[in-house]
Amino acid sequence: MMASGNGQPSSPGTFFEEVIAKTPGGEALRLCLQCGTCGGSCPSGEDMDYTPRHIFAMLAANMKDKVLRSNTPWYCVSCYYCTERCPQEIPITDIMYTLKRMAIAQGLYEDADAPDWSQTFIGMVEQFGRSYELGLATRYHLTHRPLGKIRLGTFALDMLRRDRLALTPSSIRNTSQLRAILDKAKELEGAQ
């Protein structure tokens, strides 16, 4: 009790502590009551391998592999209902982001779609400074979901017909400045 009261990790270096350290405000994770408000509130909770509450119990038990391989963080839609309602003020949505980052970094995700979508998206942003839907969706679908492109086709056609899809990327002017900022940030993050 004394130790956690002073914010000292009970067992540094564990998976649980790593997740806490990598999330701004993550210390609140220690306060989880296992009440299930998050799991009850989650719009995609029915389709998750484990509810967020269940994930937190697994985190406390340091079940790294099972947690990072689960689809739970990838099925988070960032609606922030859990964060808003959590009686212990745990930043649950941010923890889901942390778990995604850790899963990618360690290559532990099982469902390839979601992480690849995220990576395709940010590849685009880093190149042009802005996102453009058609290029992104096409590249993503052609690389990862060849069977899905037919459905994408009708969607894209509707959007194109109403001039709502960009065929060429828009780019910011100062891409070199953005690149410098992001490179520095990556360097700092790597050094952590």
Partner: peptide, 12 residues
């Protein structure tokens, strides 16, 4: 972006 790199996301 927050799902890939935390600090670059905030910097972006």
């Amino acid at each position: 972006y927050f799902a890939i790199n935390l600090l670059p996301a905030y910097a972006l």
